[in-house]
Design a protein around this nucleic acid. Structure first.
Lengths: 195, 195
DNA sequence: CGGTCTCTTGACGGAGTTCAAAGCTAGTGG
DNA sequence: CCACTAGCTTTGAACTCCGTCAAGAGACCG
């Protein structure tokens, strides 16, 4: 059930059989269906979620009531509001299933204990957070130096399957422009010969 | 000399006296003067830098040759290109002193050993990377949902001293707009009565 | 002082937004 | 299995925020 998670772990650190058992005993499994929420803004984020299948998104709601997607999570990715999770404070973010999904959960109440009992988890999450951080920096750079048009075409090139799978307005939000503008770009591609 | 660093460590984890000695023996100290480089794009990032005094910046150079600042580091902050540092690959970023600065360095060659000898360092950097990641997400949100004007005034409100200290064009770059636009904003404030 | 780096000003242009309305698609219940 | 509805996408026109370019004024350092 948690195969993908343990594979992922093994890619970063070596974990003993007993440690593996300890972790396995604490992990929760959950099926979530499309549009179901794992966290709503104002709540304290109670879990660190590892996607086994399906797709989640993390977004905030702006003053004007529109959603701003900051993060997608597909199989092999952890997602959480770590600020809320770590400090036990209400989150400003919402986490929702984009598609039916299966997830593994480490709960807030288990987390500290696990990090003590399985020291190598610190190593694992240090590397993951480092990775997430550098990815966030890269995206920030993309937002700052690239035009919306370039951002879109680059994204389509890098994740063609993903673009097919999720609603277009979510792609637009994630890339930092409006659905209308995205629609215009798509029209442009069509008319300019299907290259 | 490294007081600030050990204070910082103590805020996140408990470290034994012997561990402290081990770390102390590996830490390097360096004075860098204004405009000096710690990393240039194309080089492999050879250190993880902790700012003891002064100020550094991390930026990339765009296709048109302009600088895009992604990060400032002031006393109490670590800075590095972790992607380059971790994987031993050339960096796309540049790290430079904005002012004369003093820094503590963990070199790439020492890093792995230190994480083995001082397990609690994994814990420390896990928490730091988590913090850096959530900060990056927040800034991304700011870039995506806030107008350049709002971004500037919010920044001035939050870091009034910092705005005085560094060149305006760096603030502009960090916040994602042009020096000319920033200049216009400042003019606007002046004329609108010094509130 | 002299030169380079930084900041300012203003005119113009364009990438992307906003608003409104209509067309489409997919899920749902009868 | 069809019809209906809600949610998603498209279109187009008007608008605006901010970038670009160019030139000049300060400011700081050797």
């Amino acid at each position: 059930m948690f195969d993908l998670l343990f594979e992922h772990l093994a890619r970063f650190v070596r974990i003993s059989e007993t440690e593996r058992e300890i972790l396995l005993a604490k992990l929760r499994y959950k099926k979530v269906s499309k549009k179901e929420f794992l966290l709503k803004q104002g709540q304290i984020c109670s879990g660190n979620y590892f996607v086994l299948s399906g797709c989640l998104r993390l977004y905030s709601i702006t003053e004007t009531g529109t959603e701003q997607i900051l993060q997608f999570a597909i199989p092999g990715w952890w997602i959480s509001d770590y600020h809320s999770f770590q400090n036990n404070i209400p989150s400003t973010y919402t986490i929702q299933a984009v598609e039916d999904a299966e997830i593994a959960i480490i709960t807030r109440s288990d987390a500290d204990e696990l990090f003590q009992q399985i020291p190598v988890l610190n190593n694992y999450f240090r590397l993951l957070m480092q990775r997430a951080y550098t990815a966030a920096l890269r995206k920030m750079e993309l937002l700052l130096v690239t035009s919306a048009e370039d951002r879109y075409f680059q994204f389509v090139k890098n994740y063609p399957d993903f673009v097919q799978r999720v609603p277009q307005y979510m792609i637009a939000s994630f890339l930092g422009f409006t659905p209308e503008f995205l629609s215009m770009l798509r029209a442009k591609v069509k008319s300019a010969g299907h290259s």
